[in-house]
Amino acid sequence: MQECKEIFLRKKILLKIFYSLLSPCCLLFTLYCSLLLFFPSLSSGYDRIISLSPQITESIYLLGAEDKLIGVTTLCKRPEEATLKAKIGTPLRPDIEKIVSMKPDLILGTREGNPPIVMSKLKTFDLYTYYFSRPKNLDDLLTNFITIAQFVDKEEEGRRIVETVRYALHRMKRESPLRVLWQVGANPLIVASKMSFANDIIKLAGGINVIETDVPYPRVSIEEVVAKKPQVIVLMDMGYPVEQEMTKWKSCIDNIQFVIMDAYVVGSPTPLTFLEAVKRLVDKLNSTNMP
């Protein structure tokens, strides 16, 4: 009798332990399901994605998830294969009709590059849209990249690329810091300040940005630039004649050196284009012998 009681008690204790373990598991499972329901970004499995920004398109290709991309803008030209994807218009004027007819399950855009009315109109069709903010520095760029990787179910690959870029940046050898001017526009003369995204490239390359205003891309005069005594000028392939600019600066500043960058480095950067840009600037700064 005593033995029976003991067995019964033991069973009871085991059951209690079992239930006490089961209930938190149930609770966690319910919580996870509701999170998936209310925050679809946590769930992967998007396989009909439309990109409204060249930067997002390039990142998706970089992650090797281009098969999930069904539509891009007419400005998405990198990599070259992206031009073969169906076009949905320009980032400023995407064709809502075409987007809706393509039945995407995710639309990715940027807050600064796509007008708010586009986002609002797409929402009326119950389409899931996600808008990134333009990166202000390397950390923003890498965070956006990881989010894109999560959307295309390539988080591991994304983190690997991010780690590789961070490691490569860490390993770069910088010599004595030089004074750098990053020219964005020629007429009017627009340059990148310490508040700009380009400043991170200068900083990580071991240079010193000579423009210190609070406006990210201020207009300045030639006189002001000459007074700042830059030693290297970064020129961008952004529609202005680079050769002409080089001649102009050479006539104003002695021993000035130049680095020519592609427009996408600042316009639509990815972790790899960022790394390339820093590497190019580091090489130039290291090879420049200044008194």
Binding site: L92, R93, I96, E112, G113, P115, I117, S120, K121, R134, P188, V215, P216, Y217, R219
Partner: peptide
């Protein structure tokens, strides 16, 4: 001249006439 280039582009596009811009 003091406006962010992105905002300027969106403003210019709106000013060029757009019949789908109204909510």
């Amino acid at each position: 001249s003091i406006l962010d280039p992105d905002k300027m582009q969106i403003t210019l596009m709106w000013l060029m006439g757009d019949l789908s811009s109204l909510d």
